[in-house]
Write a protein that binds this DNA or RNA. Structure first.
Length: 246
DNA sequence: AACTCACGCAACCGCAGATGC
DNA sequence: CGCATCTGCGGTTGCGTGAGT
């Protein structure tokens, strides 16, 4: 049931938030709509790496060794303070990423098998671009790796086969219900403008990120592919959001 | 051999949600 | 309860490399 990621990261249990998620009302989604659409009022956050002189770019062997040694000794977590303690001139975020995507001992390197690719396609049909959710179900593969593989290989292959990688339906235009079709990522910024100028169209042009968040909140309900086919579910969701938003 | 282009992948960035105080 | 900080996630960028000319 648990992926290797969960085993390696005992402090992180993706299932533990479900009760919290259940209690979240759709008004939270409304908040998300407003946040997404109002790019101009985007909150300014302090950069994660305030200190100057922090190294960026490719990691050296020495840095890798330091990070591995530290994590093996102290475990994961405390990424903010880890660089200082481990003697690394790196941002904590960068350390976490390096560990999670490259240094973790359980990471499976090398080409994706056919079975793995099939799983990715199937899981993408259910979860969309929720790479971490997909990664949890593919032991040894990281979300970053899966995301890269999807974008560089699988997506192209599906298009070649005449399958829309976003909807997983035929590109021949058989699908007529666009309410369940996530928007193309390239249209996200344009969509934001549309939403500002036309409130009624807001729901039809939400960003993929927002849809993913909504999907995430319903993750515990969407346990199989039938949910994807369940257009009434999507219509109901749209209706609820519309009621909240308008 | 030199140059350009396309591709793949590691790493970065900015945000949202979780958590701590 | 509200604010600040930390962590995780998805989108994006940019560098290295190999193929093509």
């Amino acid at each position: 049931m648990f992926s290797s990621k969960d085993q390696v990261l005992p402090s992180y249990d993706p299932t533990q938030n479900h009760n919290t998620l259940i209690s979240l009302s759709l008004s939270l989604s409304l908040t998300s709509v407003i946040t997404i659409t109002n790019q101009d009022s985007r909150m300014v956050r302090t950069p994660c790496c305030r200190a100057e002189g922090l190294k960026k770019g490719a990691w050296t062997q020495e840095e890798d060794h330091k990070l591995i040694a530290y994590v093996q000794l102290h475990g994961e977590g405390g990424w903010r303070t880890l660089p200082d303690k481990a003697g690394l001139r790196r941002c904590g975020k960068s350390c976490r990423l390096r560990w999670a995507n490259y240094l973790r001992p359980d990471i499976k390197r090398g080409e994706f098998s056919e079975e793995e690719e099939d799983s990715i396609i199937r899981l993408h049909a259910i979860h969309g671009n929720k790479w971490s959710a997909i990664a949890r179900r593919l032991p040894g593969r990281t979300d970053n790796e899966i995301k890269n593989h999807w974008n560089t290989h699988i997506k192209k292959r599906l298009v070649k086969k005449g399958i829309d990688p976003l909807t997983h339906k035929s590109l021949n235009g058989k699908s007529s219900d666009h309410t369940e079709t996530p928007p193309d990522k390239s249209s996200v910024h344009q969509d934001d403008d549309d939403q500002k100028s036309n409130k009624n169209n807001a729901l039809g042009s939400l960003s993929a990120r927002f849809l993913n968040r909504v999907a995430n909140r319903f993750d515990f309900l969407m346990l199989d592919e039938s949910c994807l086919e369940n257009t009434s579910f999507m219509r109901e969701l749209t209706r609820i959001l519309q009621e909240d938003y308008v």
